[in-house]
Design a protein around this nucleic acid. Structure first.
Lengths: 214, 214
DNA sequence: GATTAAATTTGTCAAGTGTCCTAATTTTGT
DNA sequence: ACAAAATTAGGACACTTGACAAATTTAATC
């Protein structure tokens, strides 16, 4: 049961790469496991995402889970891939959007990100990933790759708005803008104290970012 | 062995509230436990901060550790208090600083925060706290209290720079500025891919924030 | 319907977790 | 020196964790 969203763009929960062989039942099991793991991660945090709890959540035995994912690392990596992929397709869509002024596209992409930040999934998962990335090189690399793709559209928009900027300047600006929005997760994300101020914050962000690139 | 810092302000590792009774030796033990826990948290993450590993890290027996901290929650809460207090004293110092222009003070406080973000301790601990705060109301409340104190000096500086702003506008601006800087932790913090771009980012931040309040 | 591969169950393993308990030892104030 | 308080040491408990190795059941194909 997915919640309907009036937004122009939105991010699906998971994007699971289809596998080669196997029966239909196996593919369903595979997906339901990833969904259960995601649900557990969002609702109760990484600590709660144990193999046993994941197995129980999708109503299979532990041994069966280890059949799909021999080690927990396998599960984590695939879940991470599925989650991150779900964001990346969205950025692709925005990149290929035309017939809009650069300023409007900047505002659009900021709106997408800031709206996404308010979802429970994003608010819960990303801090978890940031923490993991401090001690897990794989998570660090994967998440930085995601952010690199998130900056790409920002980069080209900035170039459109102010062609005089150097590549370094553009990239650093995009980095600052991206980081700036991510930081709001902690304060105005789902269930956070300033969630209701997000409309104000969006306006401040839009205004500030446009001023910054000019 | 503390690293020397040329910065005007800097944050001590821990600020441990002294206890009432007890002997000197007990206080030392108390402190060394918190230091060991902090070290473990920074170096290997929250998962590694088990009672046994903390005890081993400061070379005492598990039973002894549970004498100081009967439950792990006691340890976590006190560690959290000590860590957070260490930041709060710094904000106090900045608030009481006079004879400087508002713009200069804004730049000073941003420099303090952005320099602090580059330290290993802050880069490692805060994502951990953000993740914990999603599922632990105590952590959430304590960390939001910390940020409230961090915004206080920003708030008064903003009022000085632009007295025409309403209270709400000031607070939301301070919130945005604070969040903006916190977000950089993930990208330009200790050992992060864009750590070396921090000087650029600092200039962008200073410029952008000043534009924003005017 | 038999055969083969896929999927699932059941049970076990060593290691780690937080908490609790009791006896010895050390330190402190009188 | 003495008694009380504070500290240390060590072990035990019940539980969870990730991983593994069989058996058993289910599904698709010849």
């Amino acid at each position: 049961m997915k919640q309907s969203s009036p937004a122009k763009f939105s991010v699906p929960d998971l994007l699971i790469s289809e596998r080669e062989g196997g029966y239909a039942r196996g593919r369903e099991g595979h997906e339901s496991i990833l969904r259960a793991a995601l649900h557990l991660l969002v609702e109760e945090g990484y600590r709660a995402m144990s193999m046993r709890r994941v197995a129980a959540a999708c109503d299979i035995k532990l041994g069966n889970l280890t059949y799909y994912f021999p080690t927990k690392e396998d599960l984590v990596r695939e879940l991470l891939d599925a989650v991150i992929s779900s964001y990346e397709v969205e950025f692709e869509a925005i990149i290929h959007e035309e017939d809009v002024s650069p300023e409007q596209r900047l505002e659009e992409i900021c709106t997408l990100i800031l709206e996404d930040i308010r979802t429970k999934k994003t608010t819960r998962i990303f801090p978890e990933l940031w923490a993991l990335s401090n001690h897990d090189p794989f998570v660090l690399e994967r998440i930085q790759e995601l952010y690199a793709r998130a900056r790409a559209p920002l980069n080209s928009i900035i170039a459109d708005i102010n062609p005089a900027l150097s590549v370094d300047q553009r990239e650093t600006l995009a980095l600052f803008i991206s980081a700036s929005m991510e930081g709001l997760t902690v304060f105005a994300g789902y269930d956070k104290p300033f969630e209701n101020r997000m409309p104000w914050l969006e306006r401040i962000a839009a205004k500030g970012f446009v001023q910054l690139v000019n």
